[in-house]
Simulated assay, not measured.
Amino acid sequence: MATHLVSRSVVIDAPAQTIFDILAAPHRHSEFDGSGSVKGLVEGPERLTRGARFGMDMVLGLPYRISNRVVEFEEGRRIAWRHAGPHRWRWELAPFGDGATRVTETFDYTRAPRGVYQLLGIPARNARGIERTLPRLKRLAETG
């Protein structure tokens, strides 16, 4: 069985906890989203933890709202959320020396129906979004 993951990484000149604090603040997600689909927090906590639920205003052609739940959580190291779909958005942070951190964003669709996501072009579209998101996150974390 093939693994269906789309991942990209960047090294950020900031401690992992600084970056994680941005990722764990759902009201900041639209600041670093490079896909252009995340418009703002509708409801949710100030800071995400395992099991936390949060809703976002989104747009992909048409505006809509989506509810997410944090399904993976390791303080300062890893966070992932999902909504009603079978895929997950995962962020992993690893020390990279001299206070820098390697950040990997992954669109994990291993639980999705085989072929459907590829047919719809979702992996390629999400790869482009990740490639625009990581530099935005880097700027936020490095400039405060």
Rank of each mutant, 00 (worst) to 15 (best):
19 I>A: 02
21 D>H: 07
21 D>V: 08
21 D>F: 09
23 L>S: 08
23 L>N: 04
23 L>K: 03
27 H>K: 11
27 H>G: 03
27 H>E: 14
27 H>A: 15
28 R>N: 09
31 E>I: 08
31 E>T: 10
32 F>C: 00
32 F>A: 00
32 F>P: 01
33 D>G: 05
33 D>A: 08
33 D>M: 11
34 G>E: 09
35 S>Q: 09
36 G>H: 04
36 G>Q: 05
37 S>H: 13
38 V>P: 01
39 K>S: 02
39 K>V: 08
40 G>D: 08
41 L>S: 04
43 E>Y: 01
43 E>V: 00
44 G>A: 08
44 G>C: 03
45 P>K: 05
45 P>Y: 05
47 R>D: 09
49 T>A: 14
51 G>Q: 10
51 G>E: 03
52 A>D: 11
53 R>Y: 04
56 M>A: 05
56 M>E: 09
57 D>W: 04
58 M>I: 10
58 M>F: 11
59 V>M: 06
59 V>T: 15
60 L>I: 08
61 G>Y: 08
62 L>P: 13
63 P>I: 00
64 Y>P: 04
64 Y>K: 00
64 Y>Q: 03
65 R>T: 10
66 I>Q: 15
67 S>T: 13
69 R>E: 14
70 V>G: 10
70 V>H: 03
71 V>T: 13
72 E>P: 02
72 E>N: 03
73 F>A: 06
74 E>K: 13
75 E>L: 12
78 R>V: 10
78 R>D: 03
79 I>N: 04
79 I>F: 04
79 I>L: 14
82 R>A: 14
83 H>Q: 07
83 H>D: 13
84 A>I: 11
86 P>C: 04
86 P>S: 11
87 H>Y: 13
88 R>A: 15
88 R>W: 12
89 W>L: 14
89 W>V: 15
90 R>W: 02
92 E>D: 11
93 L>M: 05
93 L>A: 08
93 L>V: 07
94 A>K: 11
95 P>M: 01
96 F>G: 11
96 F>N: 09
96 F>L: 00
96 F>C: 02
96 F>M: 02
98 D>R: 13
99 G>P: 10
99 G>N: 06
99 G>H: 07
99 G>W: 01
102 R>E: 13
102 R>F: 04
103 V>D: 10
103 V>I: 15
107 F>E: 00
109 Y>P: 04
109 Y>M: 10
110 T>N: 14
111 R>W: 04
112 A>C: 07
112 A>H: 07
113 P>K: 08
114 R>L: 12
114 R>K: 13
115 G>C: 02
115 G>W: 05
115 G>K: 01
116 V>A: 15
116 V>F: 13
116 V>W: 13
116 V>K: 15
116 V>L: 15
118 Q>H: 11
118 Q>F: 10
120 L>H: 00
123 P>S: 12
123 P>E: 12
123 P>Y: 14
124 A>R: 09
124 A>S: 09
126 N>H: 14
126 N>Q: 14
127 A>L: 12
128 R>K: 04
129 G>Y: 08
